[in-house]
Each structure stands twice: as structure tokens, then as C-alpha cells.
């Protein structure tokens, strides 16, 4: 008997395949600098050296009430105003969709911004895949009407809740699950690259019970947590941001931090942020400091380092050692 024929792998790419052609990074430089999605706050933008990069997948992980959805809503409203000038596709799996908050965040003077937020519910991983292939069609053939901007921002809130419900901890299920991770991530990355989209995915957290498993670990609300979905999913994202929150013992005031866990273009660093009625904003490190000379130094740093250059110098020292 001949061995059974291998199962047909599903077609991953529906784009026409031509002879591969190299690209010149030099020509990409200008566009990669321009195509960043601002977070709507100069401090957070400087923290992320200009904003979220296009053509790559960014994950925002954090426990509940850390500010993941707030950030996503803010990004969705900012996309039409930013240099990207795009509408956004908001895929949500945590029902219900926070419509009230979205309307609150939208400035009163620009109610039309809400027109550029396209919303779809996702109920399962396969649902997501079919939605993404429909989105691909949409992206490839943008509608002609002038008051409809092309989609260049895809938000997925959240990936974890899709997977945490209908998978057991059995080996077979885990294998199926990680296969789906890579499929979804490949699709997201393909869309991001072909159409120069910014892709943002949110993720929940799990408690760290035993030992360090190689995944990211951070302290949030006095517990040790790491992003959900394990190491397999960590391989699937380009940039990982971790949001943590700490409640002060008696005062009840909440301190939130954003941390770059890994990113191809950023060093590991942390900054503080707050959530206000009008949105998410960064907090200057100088405001917390008691030392007056340090405050001055920070102030000076702010004045002179409006551009990205300053941050990059610092960055270089971190990773580029001597030859």
C-alpha cells in the first residue's frame, strides 16, 4: 500500500504570485518614517518613537481595566485625522461593543469621525479568518466614494477571549490552537504588509503560577502576570506592549504603566499614563520627581528632544556594542 496522500494544505495566499523581486530598504525609509499612527498624545508618541508602525502587528496586553480597549477606541478615532488618513476596522469579541464610550471620546465638533469606524463582531477563530479574508477583498478594492476613506487600521479586541472559551487543555486541542495562531497571525501580517496597515491586537493576561516559562512576566495589581496564549502566540506578534496598573493602598488612586516588552525598533522602557474622560494620555516622568534639579533636567530633555533623533541615540547605546 502506498502511504495516504498528504492532506491538502489550505491556500494561504490568494494573491497572484510572480517572480520574487527584492525591495530596496533605502526607498522604504521615508515611507516607514511617515506611516506611523499617532496615539494622540505627544508623550506617548515620543515613547513609541512616533507612534504605532505600519506593516507590522502590535499587541497590547494587560489585565482587565488596564486600558486596552480605551487605547483601541482612541486609535480608531484618531486614524482619520492622522497622516494615514484612513478608516479603521474594529473587530471585537468581548461583547458588547463599548459604543457609549466611543461616542464620549469623539470630539463634539467632529461627529463625522464615527463614520470612519467600521465595526464587526467576531465569535470564533474560524469566524475571524473568514472576516479577514472578506476584509482583504475590501482592502484590495476600496470603494470610490470620496467620503469613505480606505481602511489602514485593523483593531482586534481581544484575541484571547476567542481562544479561551472553546479549547481544552488536551495536547490535541493545544496543537490545533497554536496552528490557528500562526494562521491568523500570517493573515494579519499579510494584510498589514500588502496594504500598509497598522494592526493592533489586544490580549488578556494569566497569573504566573509556577516558575518562569520564558514568557514575559510583569507585576500588575500586586500579582505576577504574563500575557495569555503562551509562547506560541508571542512568536506571532512583532511588537508587544504591556499595560499594568497598581492601586495605592489607602488612597485608591490608580497608577498605570505602559511597557515595551519587545519591539524590533524600540528598546525596553516604561512610561506612566492616565485615562481621563477625554482619552488616554502619558504622564511626564518629571511630574513624579521630588528632586528639583532632576525636574529641570527632564524639562530640558523635553525641550531639546522633540525629534526622534534623541531617542534613537539612547537606543543605539543599548543594543549596539563595539565591533
Amino acid at each position: 500500500m502506498r502511504p495516504p496522500a498528504p492532506k491538502p494544505p489550505l491556500a494561504t495566499s490568494t494573491y497572484n504570485q510572480q517572480e520574487p523581486r527584492p525591495e530596496k530598504p533605502l526607498l522604504l525609509l521615508a515611507s516607514s518614517r511617515a506611516a506611523k499612527l499617532s496615539l494622540g498624545c505627544p508623550l506617548l508618541d515620543r515613547f513609541l518613537s512616533g507612534g504605532l508602525p505600519a506593516a507590522s502587528v502590535t499587541e497590547i496586553a494587560g489585565e482587565s481595566a488596564a486600558g486596552k480597549t480605551q487605547l483601541c477606541l482612541q486609535l480608531a478615532l484618531l486614524a482619520p485625522l492622522s497622516p494615514l488618513s484612513s478608516s479603521s476596522l474594529f473587530l471585537y469579541s468581548d461583547l458588547p461593543f463599548p459604543l457609549r464610550r466611543l461616542r464620549l471620546l469623539a470630539p463634539k465638533s467632529r461627529p463625522d469621525l464615527l463614520d470612519h469606524v467600521l465595526v464587526a463582531a467576531v465569535h470564533s477563530p474560524s469566524d475571524l479568518l473568514s472576516l479577514l479574508s472578506r476584509a482583504q477583498h475590501h482592502l484590495a478594492h476600496p470603494s470610490r466614494s470620496p467620503n469613505r476613506l480606505p481602511i489602514r487600521l485593523i483593531l482586534l479586541d481581544s484575541i484571547a477571549s476567542l481562544f479561551r472559551s472553546d479549547f481544552d487543555a488536551s495536547p490535541a486541542d493545544l496543537k490545533r490552537r497554536s496552528g490557528l495562531f500562526f494562521k491568523i497571525s500570517a493573515k494579519l501580517k499579510e494584510l498589514a504588509y500588502r496594504h500598509q496597515c497598522v494592526v493592533v491586537v489586544t490580549n488578556q493576561v494569566v497569573d504566573v503560577v509556577e516558575g518562569n516559562t520564558g514568557n514575559t512576566v510583569a507585576w500588575s495589581s500586586g500579582r505576577q502576570v504574563s500575557p495569555a496564549l503562551g509562547l506560541a502566540w508571542a512568536n506571532c506578534v512583532n511588537t508587544r506592549l504591556f499595560l499594568t496598573r497598581e492601586v495605592d493602598g489607602n488612597g485608591g488612586s490608580v497608577k498605570r504603566h505602559m511597557k515595551v516588552v519587545f519591539a524590533p525598533h524600540l528598546p525596553e522602557r516604561t512610561c506612566e499614563f492616565v485615562i481621563r474622560r477625554t482619552g488616554v494620555f502619558g504622564v511626564e516622568p518629571a511630574q513624579r520627581s521630588n528632586n528639583s534639579s532632576e525636574v529641570k533636567a527632564h524639562g530640558y530633555y523635553l525641550e531639546s528632544d522633540r525629534t526622534r533623533k534623541g531617542g534613537s541615540n539612547q537606543h543605539k547605546q543599548c543594543t549596539h556594542t563595539s565591533i
Partner: peptide, 12 residues
């Protein structure tokens, strides 16, 4: 994977 960031290449 799409992790090739041109601005980072420039820095290096």
C-alpha cells in the same frame, strides 16, 4: 515575520 524596521536598520 515583518519585523524588519527600516528606521531601526538606519540606526544600526
Amino acid at each position: 515575520e515583518g519585523s524588519f524596521m527600516v528606521e531601526r536598520v538606519y540606526q544600526i
